[in-house]
Computed example of a mutant assay.
Amino acid sequence: MNFDITEEQKMMLETARQIGERYGLDYWRKKDAAKEFPHEIWQAICDAGIAGMMIPEEYGGLGLGLVDLALCIEELCKGGAGSTLSQVFMLNPVFGGVAIALYGSDEMKRDLLPGLCDGSCTFSMALTEPDAGTNSLAMTTRAERVDGGWRISGQKIWITGVAASRKMLIVARTTQPQDGVKKTHGISLFMVDTAREGIGHTDIDKLGTHTLPSSVVYLDRVFASDAEVIGTIDGGWPQLLDILNCERIVTTSGLVGTGALALRLAVDYARERKVFGSRPIGSYQGLQFPLAQRWAELEAARLLNLKAASNFDRGLPFGSESNAAKLIASQAASGAAEQAMQVMGGMGYSRETHAERLWRDARLFRFAPVSEEMILNYISTVNLGLPRSY
């Protein structure tokens, strides 16, 4: 197993580092306070080719892999953004790029992938429902066959980035569950215009990730043509899992970057702050050990995440690795941000030291996009072979 970074990757990471630092902590504090989408940094990311990193060259991308993208996301989030920037990668290179590149038609690839690469086409995905939550197979959103396509009706919740998106990936049932047939049968994916007639949405007031609003989405007989189907009708469940497991990988990359940023802020403060004498507080093991513990956890999550990304790039199963990496990273990143606040004392509660924003944003990812309890369920049954509990 080779852990070396290639010269090409070093150049990409340097570009990502420069962008991340150019739009640093103060930029994100202002965007968070104003609840504004980070258009400027996203356009810079697109201009640098990072958004289209995994897109084939014929559609305007770089034709590289998920390992390359994961490394760049870490560096970008480490520069000041924290974990909220990784959500923009979920929306566009994953919900848009992975979905279309793997399962979209040739026409859809030609129409949408160049826009993803240059930033002119943005995406969201409508999956979660109020009465289903993590149990996506219990969704009640239905797509009914009509002349030339489908009519989609239902309600979704906690859908990120709707207002900033041009396209929405909608997950719906095209066939209802039947006795003797797996519940995974009957799920289908549609890529439609966000502004299409019948789609409405309202924002949810929330604790963090203010630069990306989350919404309740209402679908009232929304028309989707046959050309807007992603993958196969009724066979969308395994295709959806590929998209969601890639979502885990970019989430983890952002969390690893967030943890590194939080540790840097804590260490910088602990080196300078002196109380009860002339020694900096960073010399005390009571502060050192919790930070060291988080560093070790983040490094473990990082390596496991890169293994998951490498497996994806090589066409190997990657679900166990991507889920386990996300579990460790979400706990470590939110813990690192909270420990940074603790190191800073009262100043950690101040917006000017940035740690509180990192904590607010990172805390989300202990239960989203999949909760740590559901990841432990997955590991218990798939990796340990224990009987299913639900």
Rank of each mutant, 00 (worst) to 15 (best):
Q342K: 06
S330M: 06
P213L: 10
L113R: 03
R221I: 01
E372Q: 11
G65K: 10
A301G: 03
C46H: 12
I243Q: 02
D131S: 12
E129I: 04
S278T: 13
F312C: 13
S310L: 13
C117Q: 08
S334D: 03
L287N: 13
R302E: 12
C246R: 08
V382I: 15
C72D: 08
N2C: 08
G133A: 03
E297C: 12
L364I: 09
T175Q: 11
T15Y: 04
A340K: 01
L69A: 08
L25T: 12
A337Q: 07
A138W: 08
E228V: 03
V171Q: 03
F365Y: 15
S124E: 01
K307R: 15
T381Q: 10
D226R: 01
I233V: 15
S83V: 09
F190T: 05
E321D: 12
M168C: 13
V382E: 15
L189R: 07
T141D: 00
R29G: 07
Q285P: 01
D118K: 03
D68T: 06
L298T: 04
L85P: 05
D220Y: 00
W295H: 06
I19Q: 12
G259Q: 01
Y103T: 00
H210T: 11
T353Y: 10
R196A: 15
K30Y: 06
E247I: 07
C77T: 08
A34G: 05
E14D: 14
L358K: 03
T381D: 11
F95C: 01
I152W: 03
E321K: 02
D147N: 06
G154Q: 13
